[in-house]
Simulated scan of single mutants.
Amino acid sequence: MKTFNIIAFALLFALLGGACSKDETKLIAVPKAGASLQASVSSIVLTKEHADETALVLQWKPADFGFQAAVTNILQVGVKGKNFEGAREVALTAGDSSYSFTTLELNTLLLAMELPVDEATDLELRLKSTISPTFTELYSNVLPLSATPYAAISFLYVPGAYQGWAIETAESLISPTSNGVYTGIIYFPEGDLEFKVTTQRSWDAAYGDDGAGRISLTASGNIRAPKPGNLELTVNTNENTISFKDHSWGIVGDAAAGWENDIDMRYDNSAQLWRATVELKAGPMKFRKNRDWGTNYGGANGILNGDNIVIAEAGTYHVVLDLENGKYSLTRK
C-alpha cells in the first residue's frame, strides 16, 4: 500500500512539474506590448503647391513580443469611429523606426480612401506588428489625425490600333481624385480592338493583358476590347484590373437617319464632350443613350430638355453634346 502511494505521488509530481514547465514556456512567448507610435502633427491641410514637401512624419518604438524577433510593421489609416474597418494599409520596411509622407503621397492615400476634398476628415492611425502567422498581432496606440486632401486629377493614356498606335494622340482615361480608378470612353472600329494603357505619353511604362480582366506593367500582350463601338473603360491601378461596358450617344430622328437608326457620336475625353459631324435634313431630332429610349434628350436654344430639337435648314452640322452642363450646340458648316 505504501509502495502504491509513493508511485502515485511521484506520478502526480511529474504531471505538476510538466505542467509548470509548459506554462513557463508559454509565458516566455506571451507578447508584452505593441509599438509606441508618435506623429509630427495631429491636423493637416494639404495643398498642391507643397506636393513635394514632407507633410507627416511617424516615429515609433518597436513592439515587444517578449523575445528577440524580426518584427514586420504595417501602418493602418482608417476613418475615426470605424474601428479600422476598411482601413488603408502601408507596408513599412523591416527594421525602420520612422516613416515620412510627402504631401502628394499622403494626398494620394486619402483620395484612395474616397475622402471628401477641401474638407477635414477625422482619421485614426496605428501600427500592426507581427513576427509570424502563428503569433497574434500586436497593435500600437491609436493616434488621431485631422486631414484635408485636395482635388487632384490624373490621367492614363490608351494608344491602340483604333488610332494608329500614336502615343502622342492617344485617348486618355481620367481619375478625378487620383484614387487609382480611371475611366474614359473610346470608340473602337471593327478590326481595331487591340491597345495598351500607359502611365505617360511614352512607352516607358505600359500595361498589357494579364488575363481574366487583369492588367500588368510586366505583361507584354496587347489588351483587347470585347467588341467594336463606343465602350466605357474602367482601369483600377490599385487592383490592376480593367473592365468594359457599353456607353454611346447617338443622333436619331427625321432630321438624321430615322428614329431607330442612330448616328453614333464620338467622345472627347479631355473635354468631356460628345461630338459628331453629320448631314442633317430639315426636321426633328434627338439624342439617345446606348441605342435605347430609356435615356434621351431633345432641347431648344442649346438647352437640353425632353422636346424634339428642330432642324430648320438641311446641311452639314458639327454637333456637340455637353451632358455635364445640360447643353448642346449645332453649327452649320
Results as ranks from 00 to 15, higher is better:
residue 2 K to N: 14
residue 3 T to Q: 12
residue 5 N to P: 14
residue 7 I to M: 00
residue 9 F to R: 01
residue 14 A to G: 03
residue 14 A to V: 01
residue 16 L to D: 02
residue 16 L to C: 01
residue 18 G to F: 11
residue 22 K to I: 00
residue 22 K to Y: 13
residue 23 D to R: 00
residue 26 K to Q: 05
residue 29 A to I: 00
residue 30 V to A: 13
residue 32 K to S: 04
residue 37 L to Q: 09
residue 37 L to A: 10
residue 38 Q to C: 07
residue 40 S to P: 08
residue 41 V to C: 04
residue 45 V to M: 03
residue 49 E to L: 08
residue 50 H to C: 11
residue 51 A to N: 01
residue 54 T to I: 02
residue 55 A to W: 02
residue 62 P to L: 06
residue 72 T to K: 07
residue 74 I to S: 09
residue 74 I to Q: 11
residue 76 Q to D: 10
residue 81 G to V: 13
residue 82 K to I: 10
residue 83 N to Q: 10
residue 84 F to V: 07
residue 86 G to I: 02
residue 86 G to D: 02
residue 91 A to L: 10
residue 93 T to E: 07
residue 95 G to K: 07
residue 96 D to P: 14
residue 98 S to E: 14
residue 101 F to W: 06
residue 102 T to R: 01
residue 104 L to K: 04
residue 108 T to E: 00
residue 110 L to R: 12
residue 114 E to L: 07
residue 115 L to S: 15
residue 116 P to R: 11
residue 123 L to R: 09
residue 124 E to L: 12
residue 126 R to S: 12
residue 133 P to W: 13
residue 135 F to L: 12
residue 136 T to P: 13
residue 136 T to N: 09
residue 137 E to A: 12
residue 137 E to V: 15
residue 139 Y to G: 14
residue 144 P to H: 09
residue 145 L to E: 06
residue 148 T to I: 12
residue 148 T to Q: 05
residue 149 P to R: 01
residue 149 P to E: 06
residue 152 A to H: 09
residue 156 L to W: 08
residue 160 G to H: 03
residue 162 Y to C: 11
residue 165 W to M: 15
residue 167 I to M: 05
residue 170 A to Q: 10
residue 176 P to E: 10
residue 177 T to R: 15
residue 178 S to D: 08
residue 179 N to Y: 01
residue 182 Y to R: 08
residue 183 T to C: 07
residue 184 G to D: 15
residue 184 G to E: 13
residue 185 I to S: 03
residue 188 F to K: 01
residue 188 F to W: 04
residue 189 P to R: 11
residue 191 G to L: 09
residue 195 F to N: 15
residue 197 V to H: 00
residue 200 Q to Y: 05
residue 203 W to T: 06
residue 205 A to M: 14
residue 206 A to Q: 03
residue 209 D to A: 04
residue 209 D to C: 07
residue 210 D to T: 02
residue 211 G to M: 05
residue 216 S to W: 11
residue 218 T to Q: 05
residue 222 N to L: 10
residue 224 R to D: 12
residue 228 P to W: 02
residue 232 E to P: 13
residue 238 N to K: 13
residue 238 N to T: 07
residue 240 N to M: 15
residue 241 T to L: 10
residue 241 T to M: 15
residue 243 S to H: 08
residue 243 S to K: 13
residue 247 H to Q: 12
residue 250 G to P: 06
residue 258 G to R: 10
residue 258 G to V: 05
residue 258 G to K: 04
residue 260 E to F: 01
residue 264 D to L: 06
residue 265 M to R: 04
residue 266 R to A: 03
residue 267 Y to P: 03
residue 268 D to Y: 01
residue 271 A to W: 00
residue 275 R to L: 05
residue 276 A to M: 08
residue 281 K to L: 10
residue 282 A to T: 06
residue 284 P to G: 13
residue 285 M to V: 03
residue 286 K to V: 13
residue 288 R to D: 06
residue 291 R to N: 05
residue 297 Y to N: 06
residue 299 G to C: 01
residue 300 A to F: 15
residue 300 A to C: 04
residue 301 N to L: 04
residue 302 G to R: 08
residue 303 I to M: 11
residue 315 G to N: 11
residue 318 H to V: 14
residue 318 H to T: 12
residue 319 V to D: 03
residue 320 V to G: 05
residue 321 L to V: 03
residue 324 E to I: 10
residue 327 K to P: 15
residue 327 K to N: 15
residue 329 S to L: 09
residue 329 S to Q: 14
residue 330 L to P: 15
residue 332 R to C: 14
